[in-house]
Write a protein that binds this DNA or RNA. Structure first.
Lengths: 191, 191
DNA sequence: TAACGATACGGAGCACTGTTCCGTTTTGGC
DNA sequence: GCCAAAACGGAACAGTGCTCCGTATCGTTA
């Protein structure tokens, strides 16, 4: 789908493929220590490449973030149907799935903060996360609504945005527990 | 409390007082059109003053934001006890007060986004809003808890942060309604 | 294997923003 | 009117995103 996808790059030159891997690893490392807002120069330096190279492979920061976390987002998306099948009730599945999502967000320094749609230049990130996860969330939501466990008037998109927003800053403030508030939100969903 | 408080400036020179007023008005105008993240230069230009002047009066952007919105924050804080006295139940008062707070946030382009504690340099803003509003929220929360209407294990600070976070980006996305989600959160608070 | 076009690289440089610093101007008391 | 203190203005510096183009590398073809 995106030519920065490392796997599909048979047509690229060997050095290009190598650099892409290096860049991905460097970015992942820098994101852990400095958050996803780390200066592009830092990532380039860590990978031992120039500025041009990083921008050629990942035109926007969002592309880089997407590439780094793609695996985890996929795993989260795939967990949806699995949970639905293995949980006692759709509501339980929804709760667990949201937990998964929240865990993912709060362990990625600053990631939740760039998920919001308004921050300029992050359309790609917003689009990818939401395109991938909203349908999964909708499936869980529909199942729970069909089972009469929750109200049916909240859209998956809105819920995901809300959960994402609640996760902002929760990694840097010991007095703010995003998990608890998200739990409250889900409780509020119940009929 | 803060020497950038326009009212208390009998000791300042006349031009300084005049510039402070001008700056406040310019900032308020620019905040409306460009949000609270507007370039400092824009505000200075709008006010017809130099960069030095704006920084002398308001050492950080947070000081300026606080000064601009102080009146509204005070009004919101004072509405707490009033609502508690005039509402049928503490829970109703809490709901209405939160509505007030949400209205305030979503109509100020980008304000909610800088309320989070992590964004560097906004400690003053974070501190002011929270110092002023958390006690009010706590009073409402305590009253509702004492009346047995809500659970008692959620701190006012946490709730305010959560509500603030939920308001992020709601002014720029027609598919995201912060009010509805905040409503859900408050619903989740009920026993 | 040598040459050559396509591909990719590196990093200087530009644009934009926050912030500081200091020479100049204005103010207000004498 | 004079002068010291107060305040002003904006140039200059620093950090960051992003572009551009001369150079280096790759891989294919003869």
């Amino acid at each position: 789908m995106n030519d920065s996808d490392a796997g599909a790059a048979r047509s690229k030159r060997a050095d290009a493929r190598r650099n892409e891997r290096t860049l991905l690893e460097a970015a992942a490392a820098v994101f852990v220590t400095s958050g996803v807002d780390a200066p592009v120069r830092d990532i380039a330096a860590r990978a031992g490449v120039g500025m041009g190279t990083i921008y050629r492979h990942f035109p926007t920061r969002a592309d880089l973030i997407v590439a780094v976390y793609r695996h985890q987002v996929e795993a989260c998306a795939e967990a949806g149907p699995t949970l639905l099948a293995s949980s006692a009730t759709p509501h339980a599945a929804l709760t667990r799935w949201i937990d998964l999502f929240v865990d993912f967000l709060v362990t990625k320094h600053g990631l939740a903060a760039v998920l919001r749609s308004d921050s300029a230049g992050f359309d790609t990130l917003h689009a990818y996360f939401l395109d991938r996860l909203v349908p999964v969330c909708a499936q869980l939501l529909d199942a729970a609504a069909a089972a009469g466990e929750i109200r049916a008037d909240v859209a998956a998109y809105e819920l995901m945005r809300g959960v994402g927003n609640l996760c902002i800053g929760s990694e840097s403030d010991p007095d703010y527990d995003a998990r608890r508030l998200v739990g409250l939100l889900i409780t509020g969903l119940a009929l």
